[in-house]
Design a protein around this nucleic acid. Sequence first.
DNA 1: GTCTATAATCCGATAGAC
DNA 2: GTCTATCGGATTATAGAC
Lengths: 217, 217
Amino acid sequence: MTTTGSTTSDSDGGPAAPTGTSRPARRGPYAKSAERRVAIVEAAFEVFSSKGYVGGSLRDVAEVVGMSQTSLLHYFPSKSALLLAVLERRDAVSDRSAAPPDCGGLVETVLGQARHNESVPGLIALYAVLAGEAVTAGNPGSGYVRERFERLRVEYGDALRALEARGRLRPGVDPDRAASGLVALWDGIQVQWLLDPDRIDVVQQLQDYLELVIVPE
Amino acid sequence: MTTTGSTTSDSDGGPAAPTGTSRPARRGPYAKSAERRVAIVEAAFEVFSSKGYVGGSLRDVAEVVGMSQTSLLHYFPSKSALLLAVLERRDAVSDRSAAPPDCGGLVETVLGQARHNESVPGLIALYAVLAGEAVTAGNPGSGYVRERFERLRVEYGDALRALEARGRLRPGVDPDRAASGLVALWDGIQVQWLLDPDRIDVVQQLQDYLELVIVPE
DNA sequence: GTCTATAATCCGATAGAC
DNA sequence: GTCTATCGGATTATAGAC
């Protein structure tokens, strides 16, 4: 479902030689260009987090980054390409899957990530808005959201199956369904938390769920 | 957070005498007007369900209902007023709280509602999109979504406390937190279901959760 | 009540000067 | 690379004829 996406794949990690010659000439402007791209993506993250992809405009992003809207389109060919760049960058920087799930404990990984998320409400809002918009027709982020769900389901499913093999899963619990449930509860409770931060404790909710699914050692 | 909202409160149930005189004169045109309002609200439901509130336009709604956009604004003063009318009507027709929670069993009520929801994916999509948009700044549906969360939390919290009094709650489970968790899991799994209907079974997921929270009689 | 016409903005994207 | 200018279209909402 990803339409373009190729333009942003070389944004991270350096200039990435334009043609094929590894000549180090003119590295300065390219490095500056890469910095610009990062600044734009960060501004777009800020805008899309607070206004959504549909509700946020390229002019909003351009204003945040301090340039004209047309200059912005010099770095990204379209608005949807910018959205995909934001999503790719967020994956690269940090997601729930930051730590490998089967080496550290699942519980510690999940609760640690949830604790960290409290300090980045913008990131949580971005996922909440995009997940909602993803169910609308023709949304350029739908593929990303769907694949993210699949990835998390597999990841937590594997971790829960490993626990099951050690007899740590409560009898009758299906690891794959519990993985879907964990993702669903996590996403859902974050929406409630965003709308009522004082009454909702995301970490507590996840801990409650994991204690129901996983039996103490 | 609701700005207008007063214009739509008299839309359901009849003409509702314009000034204060209960004179039955000229009932015909008013009845037709009420029908028109209902048709508009239903068209708006269709549009907002598939494109979201931000992404859907008054022209889209007008096209579905078969009238001009300006005529539509003769019945509703603004786009946000139309959204609120859609939400109010959906509450009146059917919501999860359709059946009283403490008379019938909580499990049967929840699973029955979830089963019914499978036949109205548009309604599920509407809630999913609006919940996401509700976390954005200045969204006219934020108040509604927040209050809906509060209402459901209280409702399920009461039902779970009643079960707790009869010793039906698993030891260590907090009824209020479990209520928030139920709402969160329900909303979250519906989003996954909308994006991957073949791999997600909403009813099964809710049943799994309730079996973890509630012990068999 | 319904319409056409239109105001007043905003949108994404393009053209081209510098 | 960055800009101004602008295109072509969209939006919500208003004015006023009929």
